[in-house]
């Protein structure tokens, strides 16, 4: 599974971090960091992270 975040849209709400802490995190400056190729076993939580993004900036490919 491939995760792509449109960083032009992302406004660092951090809702994805609550939904999928294995894949998304906030760095020390409060900006989003993420694992671009997470294990397929995490699909449910990554899909939830994509759902709860207020800017709808998270795309899942494959």
């Amino acid at each position: 599974m491939k995760v792509v975040v449109d960083m032009n849209k992302c406004q660092d709400h951090g809702q994805c971090v609550f939904a999928s802490p294995d894949v998304f995190s906030m760095d020390d400056d409060g900006h989003l960091a993420y694992v671009p190729d997470p294990d397929d076993a995490l699909r449910d939580e990554v899909e939830e992270a994509a759902d709860v993004c207020p800017l709808q900036a998270i795309r899942i490919e494959g």
Partner: peptide
């Protein structure tokens, strides 16, 4: 700003 909203998240 960011610091305040991060503070809120800590109570979630």
């Amino acid at each position: 700003g960011q610091a305040a909203t991060r503070g809120a998240a800590r109570y979630r």
